[in-house]
């Protein structure tokens, strides 16, 4: 763990929307590191701020406070034009809805080439074509798909186009925002396998934003559970599943339906009740309760969680 290189550092990140009385804090003092080559998952419900964090990393959402450091360079706040371009080249994003995130009036050829055009990442027209063909074949599409439009594809194919568009930039870090939520079960497996393939071949680092813990378990090395803009628990995947401490993590784990009628019939639903936390005097903060396992808790809760630890 210690010899792994930290590629992305998110420090005290807060993001607020609106101003004055209508201010809404979507992300509150979030801290985490992502190691090179790993898949780091951010899991939470809608409105938890998980997508906002992902979008902050690719500089779509501005930060209110805190900073984001990528490859030892600060990438949040105002950047020079060169730095901005460097960030775009290194960090790419795949969006949840493959239909909404592709320009429906552009051909697949243009959609995938857009990044190349913007950054002049090709020597000549032939080189560009070769790169697009390669990107298409990497995601399992054919060169003849180039002249088609997004609406001519199925959901799974569109998501492949979205991935090809991101991967042609040869990014080091990929932010995948619920890339499989809108897809059918059989297609999900194809897209997950594809992401894993890229990771193996290119040492790609992936930040995977999702709401479904069961999917995340299969692909991620570490998981951060986020609730109302705050990371409440962060641990290595198996540690989190076997040794979850925070009541919110437990409620999430109990809510995921498992494809097994016997388990489902005997399952007890844990409902998260925020009032179990008494933070009036004893204030909570983010603690490393055991190496690599972090939790948002106050002193009294820490004592209790320590006893629960296996």
């Amino acid at each position: 763990m210690d010899d792994k290189k930290v590629i992305l550092e998110v420090k005290d990140l807060s993001i607020t929307f609106g101003s004055g009385k209508k201010t809404f804090t979507a992300v509150k003092n979030v801290n985490f590191n992502v190691f090179e080559g790993e898949t780091f998952a951010i899991v939470g419900e809608s409105g938890s701020g998980k997508t906002t964090i992902g979008r902050a990393i690719v500089r779509i959402n501005p930060l209110s406070s805190g900073e984001i450091i990528y490859d030892d360079k600060k990438i949040s706040g105002k950047l020079s034009k060169e730095m901005d371009q460097w960030v775009i080249k290194n960090i790419q994003m795949v969006f949840q809805d493959p239909a909404a995130s592709l320009n429906e009036r552009a051909t697949i050829d243009y959609i995938i080439s857009e990044g190349l055009y913007n950054f002049k990442l090709y020597k000549n027209e032939e080189d560009r074509k070769a790169k697009v063909d390669q990107a298409l074949s990497d995601v399992g599409l054919l060169p003849e798909h180039k002249s088609r439009y997004p609406h001519e594809f199925s959901g799974g194919q569109r998501q492949r186009v979205g991935i090809a568009r991101a991967m042609i930039m040869e990014p080091k870090l990929l932010i995948a925002d619920e890339p499989i939520s809108a897809l059918d079960v059989s297609i999900r497996a194809q897209v997950l396998n594809l992401l894993k393939k890229f990771q193996k071949e290119r040492n790609l680092t992936v930040v995977f934003v999702a709401h479904d813990l069961s999917v995340v378990r299969f692909i991620s090395d570490r998981i951060a559970v986020i609730h109302k803009g705050r990371i409440v628990e962060l641990a290595e995947t198996e540690e989190l599943f076997n040794n979850s401490l925070h009541p919110y993590t437990k409620s999430l784990l109990s809510a995921v339906p498992l494809p097994d009628p016997e388990i489902e019939k005997s399952k007890e639903l844990i409902v998260y009740d925020e009032s179990v936390h008494d933070y009036s005097v004893d204030k909570p903060s983010f603690h490393e309760i055991k190496p690599g396992h972090f939790i948002w808790a106050n002193q009294a809760e820490l004592e209790k969680y320590r006893l629960e630890l296996k």
């Binding site: 799974g156 497996a189 396998n193 999917v215 299969f218």
Partner: peptide, 23 residues
Amino acid sequence: WALLSALPQIGKKGEDLFAIPGT
């Protein structure tokens, strides 16, 4: 069989998930 095999819950880390080929 294919639908059940493609479930990520039974996937093994480091191995490919079973994916149904074609459409």
